[in-house]
Nucleic acid binder design. Structure first.
Length: 329
DNA sequence: CGCGTTTGACCCGCGC
DNA sequence: GCGCGGGTCAAACGCG
């Protein structure tokens, strides 16, 4: 299990002590500069000073953005190294067993669906009318030898979402799609119940979602998507405005690979080769959308970091003080 | 009243 | 063949 804390601003060498800048100036000078500031400056002088300060802050902002971008690139490089490493090195025996069990379970899922076809009046009948759906075509073939093909066709992916540990709801993995809960089950290996959802946006949509809290960290929700949506995304805006931020690293193309708005980005690198393409496609990593997403992530993390805020405030106030002092002299 | 959720029962595959 | 466990169904229930 590899969770990446995207940003740790505490490691940045930021000046988080607002007083340190003030210390550089004798207190009396600061006090006098403040006291004279009010009476001496005219409005125009103040405006020009503020404008200069604004441009200066803008430059600092640019520099910070560049640093963030650099950080982001370093992060991507490291991640690529890790993914390459994981793909090149064989799994340990115990890990292999887990993967093997998962594969068996997933193959049983597909055959289950096929066997259920006669019981399921609603969706499956409709699906059988849907000639373009390859999933349903394959699920109708109940022959065991078709399992591997089905396994390849039913694409799965995982999304990890960090939530409040006290929040017991399993429905907070918002991704813009409409989901209808059709079951909940307590599994043996995890005391937390697993919830089962179907995509209800389109009646013929075969996509299912399983949501369960991680046994290792109960503040993390693990959402497993199965299948592909056969309809367009109902609302990208809704996805972007949802309360969780997560990154999908898997093979299912349909659930949104990037959703936004929470503080956590977690990458699933636990299934390196189950479907053959578990690592993030380099096109995705290099895409401006992904880059922008990462930058937004970092900016979000930074703005939520009190020490970073203090550092920025200190830098601005320090500059402001210095500026006023130099202007005065 | 319609829609979504809950939850116990049932089905099915797998291992022994 | 039997038991176990995961997945699904569908009636009951709650909410707006």
């Amino acid at each position: 299990m590899a969770y990446f804390s995207l940003l740790d601003t505490s490691s940045l060498d930021l000046n988080a002590n607002p007083m340190s800048l003030v210390d550089e100036v004798p207190i009396k000078e600061v006090q006098t500069s403040f006291s004279e500031l009010g009476r001496k400056n005219s409005v125009t002088e103040e405006t020009s000073a503020l404008e200069e300060e604004l441009s200066r802050v803008n430059e600092e902002n640019k520099k910070l953005t560049e640093q963030l971008t650099e950080l982001c690139e370093n992060y991507n490089a490291l991640r690529n190294h890790l993914v390459d490493y994981m793909s090149k090195n064989p799994l340990r025996a115990d890990q292999a067993n887990v993967v093997e069990k998962k594969r068996k379970a997933e193959s049983s899922i597909t055959t289950n669906n096929g066997g259920r076809a006669t019981n399921n009046g609603g969706n499956n009948n409709i699906n059988s009318d849907h000639s373009s759906s390859s999933d349903e075509d394959s699920s109708c073939n109940k022959k065991p030898r078709a399992r591997e093909e089905e396994h390849v066709k039913v694409k799965t992916s995982r999304v990890y979402v960090r939530t409040e540990a006290s929040d017991t709801s399993l429905q907070i993995v918002k991704d813009g799609y409409q989901w209808r809960k059709y079951g909940q089950k307590v599994t043996r290996d995890n005391p937390c119940p697993r919830a089962y959802f179907k995509c209800s946006f389109a009646p013929t949509c075969p996509v299912k979602k399983k949501v369960q809290r991680s046994i290792e960290d109960q503040s993390i929700l693990v959402a497993t998507y199965e299948g592909e949506h056969n309809h367009s995304h109902p609302s990208r805006v809704e996805a972007a405005a949802s309360s969780n931020r997560c990154v999908t690293i898997g093979s299912a193309p349909s659930p949104p690979r990037l959703t936004s708005s929470g503080p956590t980005v977690t990458l699933d690198l636990t299934k390196p080769n189950t479907n053959g393409d578990a690592k993030i496609p380099s096109q995705v990593v290099k895409s401006p959308e992904f880059q922008q997403f990462l930058v937004e992530q970092m900016a979000s993390s930074l703005t939520k970091d009190p020490s970073f805020k203090a550092a920025v405030a200190a830098a601005i106030s320090g500059r402001f003080l210095q500026h006023n002092l130099t202007e005065k002299w």
